[in-house]
Simulated assay, not measured.
Amino acid sequence: MNVEAYTATGILEAYILGELTVREQEHVAFQLQHYPALRDELVRVEKTMEQLALQAAVKPKAHIKDNILQSVGKRIKSQPTNASNFWVWLAAASVILACGFAYVAYNYYVQWSSTSQQLAEIELRNQQIAQNLNTVNLELSKIQDEINVVENPAYSRVILTGTNQVPDAKATVFWNASTQEVYLRVQHLQALSTENQFQLWALIDGKPVDLGIFDSKNGLIKMKPTSRADAFAVTIEARGGSPVPSLQTLQAMGSTKG
């Protein structure tokens, strides 16, 4: 390669000044990589151009320097330094990030609160359903127990009908003489005050035997057991019961003799 002819074109000066195209720059870089003499010439051209620039430079007057320094001083006083700008920017960014995190946290809290409330409502609803199911199961169990008594042929069914005072009174006694179990079902009895209760009696050889007190309600009522009974009767007594029946408050009566 003829280095002198190559450099005479002014391509190295254009390379230094950045006036070449990308393709031309790549071509010069390739030549510099393979020709040491061309690299030396590039160094010489760079130094020459630097010297020419220094020789052509004009020294500024002293007052211009002072004016520049004063202007810079004013700008420094009126504006924050780069470091200050950095910390101001950093503080602003921190505030923005804090606000962002606060918003995200608040949004998460709102969603969590809503979800927590929904879960609490679901849990409460499940508890209510469980309680209802438990109540239903108890009722079904009670009904099954009643069916086992009512349909069991071991139990004698004694119908108690109303007296002349209360002709519409009616109740049924289910009595198992073998197990001595006694159950009572009320079909109709008059309403009582809070001071009174009904009391069931078994008449054995003409003598009344207490079989327990009860309040009028639906379903079978388990009473006290008895191994013997000629008849059953219901009276109204003071709350808590009485050792002997009040004949004037006799409500219903039925014989076991059929």
Rank of each mutant, 00 (worst) to 15 (best):
S113R: 15
Y106L: 14
K217P: 00
E139S: 07
L38Y: 00
N134L: 14
I143S: 11
K170F: 02
P225I: 01
G241N: 07
T179D: 08
T81A: 01
A154I: 07
E195P: 00
I147T: 10
D205F: 04
V88D: 00
S116F: 06
Q33L: 12
H63C: 02
S227E: 12
K207E: 15
G206L: 09
A93R: 11
Q131R: 14
F101Q: 11
E4F: 03
A191L: 06
Q127E: 15
L17C: 05
E41R: 15
A83M: 02
I213Q: 13
G240N: 03
A83H: 00
A37P: 01
R125W: 03
R125F: 07
I64Q: 06
A171K: 07
R75F: 07
D205E: 15
R239L: 10
Y35T: 07
T226Q: 04
R157M: 08
V58G: 04
G241Y: 03
A238L: 14
L124V: 10
D215H: 11
E237H: 02
I221L: 15
L189H: 07
N82Y: 05
V149R: 13
P36L: 09
P153G: 08
M1Y: 11
R23L: 10
N196P: 00
L119M: 10
N196W: 06
Q131T: 11
E139R: 12
Q248F: 02
S178Y: 14
P36R: 13
Q187N: 14
E50R: 11
Y103E: 11
F101P: 03
Q25E: 15
P60I: 08
V149C: 03
K59F: 11
F101W: 12
A105C: 06
D215W: 10
Q51P: 00
A57H: 13
V110K: 14
V88G: 00
W201N: 05
A92N: 09
S94Q: 09
P60H: 03
G206C: 10
P225N: 10
Q117L: 15
H188T: 03
L124N: 12
Y183L: 06
H34M: 09
E121L: 13
W112C: 03
D40E: 14
Q197L: 08
A29S: 11
V43G: 00
F214G: 04
Q197N: 13
R39T: 03
Q111W: 10
A229F: 01
S78F: 05
A252E: 07
E237N: 09
N82L: 04
V173F: 02
A83I: 02
Q197P: 00
T81W: 02
P80H: 01
D145A: 15
S116M: 09
L140P: 01
F30C: 05
L203D: 13
N134I: 02
I204D: 07
G18A: 05
Q187T: 01
F174D: 06
T249M: 01
S156P: 04
P80Y: 05
G206F: 12
N176G: 10
G162Q: 09
